[in-house]
Nucleic acid binder design. Sequence first.
DNA 1: TCATTATTAGACCGAACACTCTAATTTCGT
DNA 2: ACGAAATTAGAGTGTTCGGTCTAATAATGA
Lengths: 199, 199
Amino acid sequence: MRKVDPEKHAAKRRLILDAAIACFARKGFHGTSTAEICAEAGMSPGNLFHYFPTKHTIIAAIVEEERQETAEIFRKLGEAEDLFAALLGFMDTVLELAGDPTYSSLALEIAAEAMRDERIGTLAAANDAELQGALAALLRGAASRNQIDRTVDAAGAARWIAAIIDGIFSRVAVDPGFKPKDEGAMLRLLLTRFLRPQG
Amino acid sequence: MRKVDPEKHAAKRRLILDAAIACFARKGFHGTSTAEICAEAGMSPGNLFHYFPTKHTIIAAIVEEERQETAEIFRKLGEAEDLFAALLGFMDTVLELAGDPTYSSLALEIAAEAMRDERIGTLAAANDAELQGALAALLRGAASRNQIDRTVDAAGAARWIAAIIDGIFSRVAVDPGFKPKDEGAMLRLLLTRFLRPQG
DNA sequence: TCATTATTAGACCGAACACTCTAATTTCGT
DNA sequence: ACGAAATTAGAGTGTTCGGTCTAATAATGA
């Protein structure tokens, strides 16, 4: 009786996912063929479809992976002392991610696909809810320590910070002069003025 | 000798463009077939391709049309007395546009396509440059009248306002709880705190 | 070793794609 | 009314798509 080796199986899936991410970032979900993913991953279609039954499940797996990554980032953030500084730190990592065109492309692609495909839309909404929840918790903590303005609604502000994050990824696509690395100062100014306790 | 009637010609093009916009918003540029556009416009492929030689030219025409629309909005805005109020008014119309899912879909689709297709990327960058230029001019005017903080760099702030605009359209895709109509107050708060003269 | 199951390759499939072609019809200056 | 140009229809083109199938090979427990 042979059994599946879960480690090898997972490694193969990751290989396919990485290949797919590279292709999708270059050409979009509907612009890349499964054959291209096969070529990038160095395997035959028979092999690829052994690990993912349809192209859609590959896309869904990528969106799901995205969620785990942001959750991971927040896990490290919650323990900070100055929670407003933690927020600014998080936004710095967002700018760093935006510096990677693959990541920006993928973020935009997912948002666009969310409007077309309800299944992806649901996944993306779940990711976003998690992000907003984490941001709101951070803001509530900061407010209770008087690190930010207590009169601002945390959930509402979290929503707009999420909008700014989305906006950063769109910038990369549409504004060739936008260099994420150079924008940290202005972003901090914006957030500080928006959130700091009003004198 | 018969000549082309430019009015009829333009009307036919607009009919096709409107049909294409409806399809693209539903299924994306690469997800809709030319046959679908034909069906939506109620014409044969022979007819459609008489007016647009390729699918790509249809997409490009739509992006170009987008530019003219934003230019038109700004034309009405420049004459205002209170330029910061004019900016807030512009952002209200953005929220209004974001309430139309067709418009939001299209905006996201264009951004995503800009990362993939260099020709669309160039067009989108031109649109964005025009938007940022108009915003920066507005901000400079407001600064010179002390309606906003004079120490903030106009071009830099314009870039981040553009990011927020992009973010609004992404919100619609990814956050089912985001109702553009209800977000005016928080957006005004954000912009006011960011830009108003610091005491 | 051997039976069994996991894994792999790649030829292959029907459907759908963007677009072309030919021919018919409409339009309008004369 | 006539003829040339503009417009239209829709069947047809070669290609590419996502995905299947068959069969060969590799790995493992007994």
